[in-house]
C-alpha cells in the first residue's frame, strides 16, 4: 500500500502570540491547503489581524509553530516570509503613499529577480486592475480608497504569491467598490491559482466566496468548517456573528 503525503500550504500549530508581552492569540491551530479560499471571521477584537500578523512575522510569538510550504517561518523576519511567496495585504497603510503607482508595483516585485518576469507580472496586474495603468505615474497617496485597495492587492500579486492573505480589504470601501474587489479576488483564485485567506468583518460576504471558514473568538478558534456549516449554526451566529442573523 502506498501513502502519498502532501504538505499543507500553511500550518499553524498551537500558536500563542501578541504584542510586547501580551498574548492575544491563545493557542490557535489551523491549516490551509493549496487552492483553498479560507474566510477568517469573528467579531471586532477577536484577534484576526493579530493572527495573520503573527503568520507574516510582525508580532511576538511566545509558543507554537508556523510553517509555510514545509518551511518553519516561526518568528522569522517579514522579508524572509515574503521571499517564500507568502503575500500579505494589511488593512491600513497598505501602499507606499509617497511612491508612484508603478513604483509601488515594482516594490511588490522585489523578490522577483528576473526583470522580464517582473514585467510580465506587472502586465498581469495591470490587466487585472486596468485603472492602475492610467494612474501609473501618480503618487499612491492621491488615489481614491478603491484604487488604493486595488494597488495594495496588485503590489502583493507582483511577488507571485502562493498564498495571499488579505486583512479586511473592503473595510473602508463603498458597497459597489467592495463587490468589485471581491469579484477580483475570486478571479485571482480561479485564474491565477492563488490560494487566499481573507479576514473579513462582514462574515456573510466572506463565507459566500470561500470554501472553508474559521471563526475566531477572543484569540481562540471557536469553529472551523464549510461556509454552510457555519451559516447553519444558529447559536454561533447569534452569539458571535450578529450581522449574519437572517
Amino acid at each position: 500500500m502506498r501513502f502519498k503525503f502532501r504538505l499543507p500550504l500553511l500550518e499553524v500549530q498551537s500558536l500563542i502570540s501578541g504584542y510586547g508581552k501580551m498574548a492575544i492569540i491563545q493557542g490557535v491551530s489551523l491549516t490551509i491547503e493549496p487552492g483553498d479560499f479560507v474566510a477568517l471571521v469573528g467579531p471586532n477584537g477577536s484577534g484576526k489581524s493579530t493572527l495573520i500578523k503573527s503568520i507574516v512575522g510582525l508580532t511576538n510569538i511566545f509558543e507554537g509553530k508556523v510553517s509555510f510550504q514545509g518551511a518553519d517561518i516561526t518568528s522569522k523576519k517579514p522579508e524572509y516570509v515574503a521571499s517564500l511567496k507568502l503575500g500579505y495585504v494589511p488593512q491600513i497603510s497598505n501602499v507606499f503613499t509617497d511612491l508612484t503607482v508603478r513604483e509601488n508595483l515594482e516594490m511588490g516585485g522585489t523578490i522577483i529577480k528576473n526583470s522580464s518576469q517582473r514585467k510580465k507580472l506587472m502586465d498581469q496586474v495591470v490587466g487585472l486592475f486596468p485603472i492602475l495603468a492610467s494612474r501609473e505615474h501618480q503618487k499612491a497617496g492621491y488615489l481614491s480608497g478603491g484604487e488604493r485597495q486595488m494597488l495594495a492587492v496588485g503590489r502583493a500579486l507582483m511577488a507571485e504569491p502562493k498564498l495571499l492573505i488579505l486583512d479586511e480589504p473592503a473595510a473602508a470601501l463603498a458597497p459597489k467598490m467592495a463587490d468589485q474587489l471581491f469579484e477580483k479576488l475570486s478571479e485571482i483564485r480561479t485564474q491565477l491559482g492563488v490560494t487566499i485567506m481573507l479576514v473579513e468583518q462582514n462574515a456573510r460576504r466572506a463565507l459566500s466566496l470561500s470554501n472553508r471558514g474559521i471563526v475566531l473568538i477572543q484569540g481562540k478558534k471557536a469553529f472551523e468548517g464549510t461556509p454552510e456549516q457555519i451559516l447553519k449554526d444558529t447559536e454561533l451566529i447569534r452569539l458571535f456573528l450578529g450581522e449574519l442573523t437572517v
Partner: peptide, 24 residues
C-alpha cells in the same frame, strides 16, 4: 534604481517594505 526606490519605500512605510520582501 531599485535600491534607491527601496530606500524611499522604507522611509515611507518600513513594515510594508518588509512584507514586500525588501531587504531592509
Amino acid at each position: 534604481t531599485h535600491l534607491g526606490k527601496s530606500m524611499r519605500a522604507i522611509a515611507n512605510n518600513a513594515d510594508l517594505a518588509r512584507i514586500s520582501g525588501i531587504n531592509v
